[in-house]
């Protein structure tokens, strides 16, 4: 009987490491499908799909890539054009399903091509979507970048690409903490009061006696408590720097991510769930799939 020692130290009889890694690759793709469908359902439930936004005008952002795209005029395609918006929404949902089917059937070339299509499509969709009254482009980074992983069929390429996405995720949160030091927000004791007033002025003005407004007013009038919240958020973000040096803390980082996302909803009323694609690698960072890249380069 043939035995193989995997990177995680477990023993598997008569099963090669690539075979195990292939199964883990399949799990990654299932998770991608699950997250994508969940995010699409969330958008649909909240009326945030392109077809539900019914875009009719745009505002140009300070974004060089957006300008390059706008020269093509593609963003005007979706304006007052419900069939085009519906088609784009349909593709957004259908692509992850199609990709999963191709993976199950092991159509390698078709998978790579579809991954490429998804990369271009998700990029154009997100870029156009955020030109209209919706939300900011930064939250769509997971949608835009994860297809890079899907374009890799070979396990080694897949493993490296997954690690790149993991670094982008760490970068996303860690630099948010670094910027708070660099731009001085962390050194301003009244920072959270200013932030809450700016973020919730609409709600405070229209529903001043609501439960939420009372909480926000309380935090604003207790700047020390507000500042502690801001400091805690900054420290939480900075903790993600650990991830650049070790993958052993990834489970903790996932826990911190969920705390961050929930607190963001409660305190800031900002939904950042759309970045969930970037967190997928953290679920697999102790697996043999990651170890493949480590071993290949030795």
């Amino acid at each position: 009987m043939e035995w193989a020692t995997t990177a995680t130290g477990r023993f598997h009889s008569a099963v090669s490491i690539p075979a195990i890694a292939y199964r883990q690759q399949t799990k990654v793709i299932y998770m991608y499908l699950f997250v994508s469908l969940l995010l699409c359902a969330d958008r649909w439930w909240n009326g945030m799909l392109l077809s539900q936004l019914q875009p009719a005008f745009f505002v140009t952002p300070m974004n060089v890539t957006a300008w390059a795209l706008m020269f093509t005029g593609i963003h005007e395609l979706f304006m007052n054009n419900q069939p085009a918006c519906l088609f784009a929404d349909l593709l957004l949902v259908a692509f992850p399903v199609m990709y999963t089917l191709l993976h199950i059937k092991q159509y390698a070339k078709a998978k790579i091509m579809l991954g490429g299509c998804m990369l271009v499509f998700n990029f154009v969709y997100a870029q156009c979507y955020t030109l209209y009254p919706s939300n900011s482009i930064e939250g769509h980074i997971g949608w835009m970048l994860f297809p890079v992983v899907l374009m890799c069929h070979r396990l080694t390429d897949f493993s490296f690409a997954l690690q790149v996405i993991r670094f982008v995720f760490l970068f996303f949160l860690a630099t948010a903490g670094v910027w708070k030091i660099r731009n001085g927000g962390i050194f301003n004791p009244g920072q959270m009061s200013g932030v809450l007033l700016l973020q919730h002025s609409q709600l405070l003005a229209t529903a001043p006696s609501s439960f939420l407004a009372e909480i926000y007013y309380w935090l604003i009038s207790h700047p020390a408590v507000g500042y502690l919240l801001y400091l805690a958020a900054t420290l939480l973000e900075l903790f993600f720097i650990v991830g650049f040096f070790t993958r052993k803390a990834d489970r903790w980082l996932l826990l911190l991510l969920f705390i961050f996302l929930i607190t963001d909803i409660l305190v800031m009323r900002i939904k950042y769930w759309e970045i969930m694609h970037l967190a997928i690698p953290l679920f697999f960072s102790r697996s043999d799939l990651f170890a493949i890249a480590d071993k290949t380069s030795k």
């Binding site: 060089v64 980074i141 835009m144 731009n183 927000g185 050194f187 200013g194």
Partner: peptide, 18 residues
């Protein structure tokens, strides 16, 4: 200025006063 997918994730990092 940014260039998708390269961003600065400021997230209220500038000093904000009431």
């Amino acid at each position: 200025a940014v260039a998708t997918p390269f961003f600065n994730y400021g997230m209220y990092s500038e000093k904000i006063l009431s």
